[in-house]
Amino acid sequence: SLNIVTVTLNMERHHFLGISIVGQSNDRGDGGIYIGSIMKGGAVAADGRIEPGDMLLQVNDVNFENMSNDDAVRVLREIVSQTGPISLTVAKC
């Protein structure tokens, strides 16, 4: 069973999320979106629970499971540009 973790980040303390995301597209185009790298000083690094290779399932109320990489990057950028905490739900691989 997948270990699902939801992390809520206070964006007032850390001014950027600090992750890159990578799409693992397979033949069907539904390989999922994964955490690529984590930048020091960002909210994700400070929290420490999300790691490279984790699968990104949801951000706030947006489901990322069947999203293309381009869409995921765009949607994540829109969410980060808003104010307030950000909740990331990942599956630990």
Rank of each mutant, 00 (worst) to 15 (best):
D54E: 01
V75E: 09
N66D: 10
Q58R: 15
G23F: 02
G23E: 15
T89P: 00
D27G: 15
K92Y: 09
V62D: 13
C93D: 11
S87F: 07
M67S: 08
V7F: 05
N26I: 08
L56H: 00
V7P: 01
K92I: 00
L56K: 01
V75N: 13
L56V: 08
T8Y: 10
R77Y: 03
D70F: 04
D30R: 07
F64I: 06
L56E: 00
L17I: 13
C93Y: 15
I79M: 09
L2H: 11
K92P: 03
D61A: 12
V73H: 14
L9M: 10
N60H: 02
M67R: 07
V80T: 09
R13C: 07
V80M: 13
S87P: 01
E65D: 09
E78A: 04
G36S: 15
R77I: 02
V73S: 15
F64W: 01
M67W: 05
Q58P: 00
A91V: 13
L88S: 00
S1G: 03
V59Y: 02
S87D: 12
L2P: 06
L17H: 01
I86V: 07
G42C: 08
S68Q: 09
S87K: 12
M67L: 14
I86A: 02
V59F: 02
D70E: 13
F64K: 01
I38T: 02
L2S: 12
D30I: 06
G36V: 04
S25Y: 15
D70A: 07
G32D: 05
R77C: 03
Q82T: 13
E65F: 04
V80E: 11
D30G: 06
N60I: 01
A72R: 02
V7Y: 12
G36D: 11
E12N: 12
S1Y: 13
G84A: 07
R13P: 10
L2C: 11
D70W: 05
F64M: 13
G29D: 15
R13M: 07
L56N: 00
I35V: 14
S1H: 03
V62P: 00
T83R: 07
D70N: 11
D61T: 08
G84R: 10
G32S: 08
Q58L: 12
H15Y: 01
V7E: 02
G84Y: 06
V5N: 07
I86T: 06
M67H: 10
C93Q: 14
D30Y: 04
V59P: 01
V62E: 03
G31L: 05
L2W: 09
Q58F: 08
A72D: 00
A91I: 15
V75Q: 10
G18H: 00
R13A: 09
P85L: 14
S87L: 09
M67T: 08
R77T: 04
D70L: 04
L88K: 00
I86L: 09
D71L: 06
T89A: 13
I79N: 03
D61Q: 07
A72N: 02
L17W: 00
G31H: 10
E78W: 02
V59L: 10
M55K: 05
G53D: 15
M55V: 12
E12V: 09
C93R: 14
R74D: 11
C93W: 02
V73T: 13
N60K: 06
V90I: 15
S68I: 11
D54I: 02
G84D: 15
N66F: 08
M67G: 03
A91Q: 06
V80Q: 14
S81C: 08
M11D: 06
L2E: 10
T6R: 11
L56D: 02
V73W: 11
P85F: 07
E12P: 10
V62T: 11
L2Y: 15
Q82I: 06
C93L: 14
L88F: 05
V75I: 05
I79R: 08
S81A: 10
T89M: 05
I79V: 05
N69P: 14
E65S: 10
T83I: 10
S68L: 09
M55S: 08
V90S: 01
V80G: 15
Q82G: 05
A72C: 03
M11T: 06
D61H: 11
G23V: 02
V59K: 00
N60A: 04
G84N: 06
N69V: 07
V5P: 01
S81V: 11
E12Y: 11
E78D: 15
I79C: 07
V7S: 04
T6I: 09
E12G: 08
Q58M: 12
N69E: 10
D70P: 12
M67Y: 12
T83A: 10
E12S: 10
L56M: 07
I86W: 08
R13H: 10
S1N: 14
T6W: 03
M11F: 07
S1R: 04
N60G: 11
L88P: 00
L76N: 01
V22T: 12
V90T: 06
E78I: 13
G32H: 11
S87A: 11
G23W: 04
T6Q: 13
M67N: 05
D61E: 10
S68M: 10
S37P: 03
V75W: 04
N60Y: 01
V80W: 15
F64N: 00
G53C: 03
D54W: 02
V80N: 14
L9Q: 00
N3P: 04
M55W: 06
M11E: 03
L57E: 02
V80R: 14
A72W: 00
L17D: 02
P85C: 14
I4W: 04
L76E: 02
P85W: 02
N66A: 09
N63C: 05
R74V: 12
I86G: 01
G29F: 08
G84I: 14
P85Y: 05
D30M: 12
S81I: 07
S87E: 15
E65I: 04
R13I: 11
D54T: 00
Q58Y: 14
D61G: 09
G18W: 00
L2M: 11
L57M: 13
M55E: 12
L76W: 12
T8C: 08
D30C: 05
R77W: 05
A91T: 06
R74S: 11
R77V: 01
G31W: 14
E78Q: 05
V73A: 14
N3S: 04
S37Y: 11
V62H: 11
V80K: 12
L17Q: 01
V22E: 08
G84M: 09
D70R: 09
V73M: 10
I21N: 01
S81N: 06
V22F: 11
N3Y: 04
Q82V: 15
C93P: 04
I21M: 13
D71W: 06
V75H: 06
D61S: 09
N66K: 12
M67A: 11
Q58A: 12
N66M: 09
L2T: 12
E65K: 05
G31S: 10
N69M: 10
D54P: 00
